[in-house]
Design a protein around this nucleic acid. Sequence first.
DNA 1: CAGCACGAA
DNA 2: GGTTCGTGCTG
Length: 524
Amino acid sequence: MSVKNSKEPPTTQLHTSPQSPSQFTYQNLHDLNDPATSYLSPLSTIGLVDLNAFFAQVEQIRLGLTDQDPVVCGQWHSLIAVSYAARKYGISRMDTIASAKTKCPNLIIGHAPVYKKGEEYWSYVDGLPNAANHKVSLDMYRRESRKILRVINEKFDLTEKASVDESYIDFGREVFTKLMEYFPELKDVEKDQSLPDIPSELPLGLYWEGEVIKSEQEIADDGEGTEPVIKDWDDVCLVIGSQILLDLRRDIYKELGYTTSAGLARNKLMAKLAGGFKKPDDQTIIRNSSIKAFLKNFELTDITGMGGKLGDSLINQLEVPPQAHTISYIREHFTLEQLKEEIKDDVDLAVKLYHIVRGMYAMELTQRMEVKSMTSTKNFTFDAVANLEDAYGWIKVFSGDLHNRLVDLDNENLELSLTKMETKEKNVIRRPKTLSIGVVFPNRIRQTRQLQIPFYKDLSKMKTIMYENGCVLLREFFEANTNISMVNNNIPCKELYTKDPKKVKVVEMQNMSLTISSIHQPKS
DNA sequence: CAGCACGAA
DNA sequence: GGTTCGTGCTG
Ligand SMILES: Nc1ccn([C@H]2C[C@H](O)[C@@H](COP(=O)(O)OP(=O)(O)OP(=O)(O)O)O2)c(=O)n1
């Protein structure tokens, strides 16, 4: 269901196929109403909202274009996001700007904003900036991400920011409230009782929004266009959830102009898979009865956390045949005890896998991710940093970048302390304790050097501190970790550092970075 | 705690 | 490809 048009609400009530007695209990229902327990309830209703081709959408909106225009977000000669209009031409993230232009001559390229070497502020530039003298800034996308989060967090009490463009939402309280509104009989249920059967028809206001994945039974019955079966309260929760989810996506679109894809299911892993199923601008709902059918579309390695070596090693360890559907195979060939036996070294993993292949692994939403560190980095292709002045120039950029992000963090915390009055931590000022530089040499070896930095409330002072100490670290690093004296005619280091930095050669580097860490609140 | 491997967007 | 961010292990 698109956020851009509204369909007439149905004029007939949804028919149900009540299961008698209901599988669910008073406790299941009331667990929904508490953010600490709702993810564990079988009635749990979790959404995942993902911005479509996020960076490309940011560029599209900035340039005043529509989602019909083939916009991409570029970074040097490559693409980091491709709008759905551009994907119609067969363009993907793997394309270069040149190959993309061949596929679509009218392609619109919004290059990510950049810092110039030696400067503290980013800006959008005309044409394509040169990677040797610039560093990409992601501030713009973080800023837009924050605006979207604001819309989400205004409406819901438990959300988890999963990345710059994805958030999980626990709809438990909103679903609970609606259930009580539509089904007052639920108020009469007593502790330790089962819930009553669902009514044979739902109230007129309740109907599905989005793509409801069919169960194996429904596929077998092959009811073309027949309504998805609603047989117990978990299905009703998802009907309600699908409406709440669409409302949210419409709010995001109305207020900020962004389209989203979303998934709705019993837990985060299923919601995530569902969110990727229909893109762009749509939502997909997985009822508990259709989990099995839905999982047929995916392999174990499609599940979050299983995409790398862990997923592969599990498939090897369990000797899943090469042609087999990994998820079904594991589900059908291993009991919980057998999995524990096969994965002896990690019982927790065995239990987790057992639930994952059944689509039943419940993960808690972790609300507040405290920022622990921030890194600003730059890769170099070919000897782009020739002398000390170049190196200082990048430290200038890094300290400017980190400064901008600390300003953002301050604003976010300020907002938090204003909106959530009950937050005890009134002192929201966070400052880093350590500053470190990292350098990667052409032989891939990475080395770091760090020091403690003083606390200042004033962020522009922090910026100066970061720049000056970054330069100190750099000098110490070159002296201790490289043969800087040798590449400069054996002039002693002390003397080198008194000379014009432009005249001081440095060893070749593949990457430089500046990191602040231990970002914490002051004691007093 | 630092440094690294891993997983993700 | 580049620029991030987070977790968990190991020393
Ligand atoms: N390897 C990657 C993957 C993503 N991103 C950035 C650019 C994307 O716009 C944003 C979100 O990533 P997604 O994986 O969600 O992909 P998109 O949002 O681009 O597309 P989709 O509509 O498939 O979610 O993160 C990135 O910089 N590098």
